[in-house]
Write a protein that binds this DNA or RNA. Sequence first.
RNA 1: CGGGGCGUAGCGCAGUCUGGUAGCGCACCUGGUUUGGGACCAGGGAGUCGGAGGUUCGAAUCCUCUCGCCCCGACCA
Length: 574
Amino acid sequence: MRFSKAFIPTLKEVPADAQVASHVFMVRGGYIRKVAAGIYNFLPLGWRVIKRIEDIVREEMDRADAQEILMPASIPAELWQETGRWKKYGPELLRFKDRKGADFCFGPTHEEVVVDLVRRETKSYRELPLNLYQIQGKFRDEMRPRAGLMRGREFIMKDAYSFDVDVEAAAISYKKMYEAYKRIFKRCGLDFRPVEADSGAIGGSQSHEFQVLAESGEDSIVACDTCEYAANVEEAEHRAPKQPGIMGEGELETVDTPGTKTIAEVSEFLKVAPTQLIKSLVYVADDKPVMVLLRGDRSLNEVALKKITGATELFLARDGQVKKAIGVKPGFAGPVGVSIPVYADVELKGATGAIVGANEKDKHLRNVDLARDVKVTEFLCLRAAEEGDGCARCEGHYKSYRGIEVGHVFSLGTVYSEPMGCTFLDEGGKSKTMVMGCYGIGITRIAASAIEQNHDESGIIWPMSIAPYEVTVLPLQVKDDDVVAAAEKLYSELQDLGVEVLLDDRKERPGAKFKDADLIGIPLRIAVGKRTLGEGKLELKWRRDAEASNIDLDGAAEAIAALISSEKQALRAR
RNA sequence: CGGGGCGUAGCGCAGUCUGGUAGCGCACCUGGUUUGGGACCAGGGAGUCGGAGGUUCGAAUCCUCUCGCCCCGACCA
């Protein structure tokens, strides 16, 4: 492609609504333009990146025996009513009516449609396993779209659905997808971790998120420094401590703590560390109040509490509900003498000398001995994991990271196949329900996360595998015939070798071309200038490196093509 | 959905408090000089001041309503 003919509107200034690197550079580099909140145009460069990512995903999905189909974006409400999601899915589901007034939605995910397809066409165990996938625009009316392509409302997703005869077979399908995902993200040049995720209310047996490690990520994850264990902090288990988290001595006493409602205020007022306090939280689990005890500086792992209580709906109690349950508003709530179930974090087992709310306005209790003074229903691992905690699986310790979720694999069991009657006949002629899995990849989010992970102050640094072009050729003096001729020759030779090349033939000064090249982030840059041309050389620079080097003009195209293909091989082999 | 902020030329912003000819930088067009890290000079085109209503002799500016966008939070197969 010739830059002079290309639709690549680059910007010098940072758009006011962009905060994160991927958003800033994709707008400045002429990759995307906003149409509405969370909805974007993909310009030629942006679309080339998406297509390259899609190609990698297709290759690996096909290799894992999945078959590509395309389902509609518009889905009739009847299908969603069958599974009850028409009611359950909130305002995030974009609903609309056709001219006859029939309800439709713009599919945010396609379980219903694919199950409907498979239940009609697949009748025998001989046809299973079956794995169908599509790459398609999805719409989710997010409350708060943000950060460009990182969290959009309309976005491109690869979604796959597996159908198996039983749980064991489904586990094999799951594993195949898990392995395919690892290959996909590696080939995209991403530094990622598969992490254990909440399989929660949906009921499946397992679930993994694929998280790209990046400071700007929305998710918090912990990963063991010794073994392979990594998990979303919403979900992470951790090793119980050997010693109680709070120790002290003294007589149980009531102290006045006027107006101190938060942990910080109480610790400030009593001149003790927050670690000497016990945080008493009242939650409502399916309409029943429960109390949770944590050390003052910890936070709750809500998923763990959900599992323990078996509740499908769980939320922090409002002031009035707390008052009703234990007779005092939050701020002075405590576990001594309450009649609702009390779940304490294991860290508090054997705790003495703790400070808790007195269940009386403006009063706290000091020197509480949990064993002596509190009726604890159960000690459990309840707090959210933090950096430095002991690993649940080995003797290692956790490091914490921020992550961007680019993929999610999920075993669904029969959650959809059961209500929709997706069955088959087994060898004995008996009707059975298919066991499913679903597997998503955020195609557009991969593009954003690749930039989050690979950029500097000047712009993007694309991995070779997903870059819009593999090499850019810059003729530096457009009025010098020798320079132009050499650049044109190299350009056509590279094209003949099948290299994706962008020739910056614009009548710009060298500085402007360098700046745009850095911004756009094509991994290899060849500068054709009269300085080096006189010695029969071209200047070659990797976008990721600070220094350039010279290569011979003779055979340059072949040498460049070889560099590109070995770079791509390296990503595959990683 | 709660809190905060912003809508003025394609982009970034000033002007709004204190009503009185709509501005600056970048980008764009023309001409000239420049040419290895976003050149310079001269000239030029471009804005229903988000929208509707109101107050006023007069509204970008004051009032009411509304729409859009951004940030924080809550939420999120």
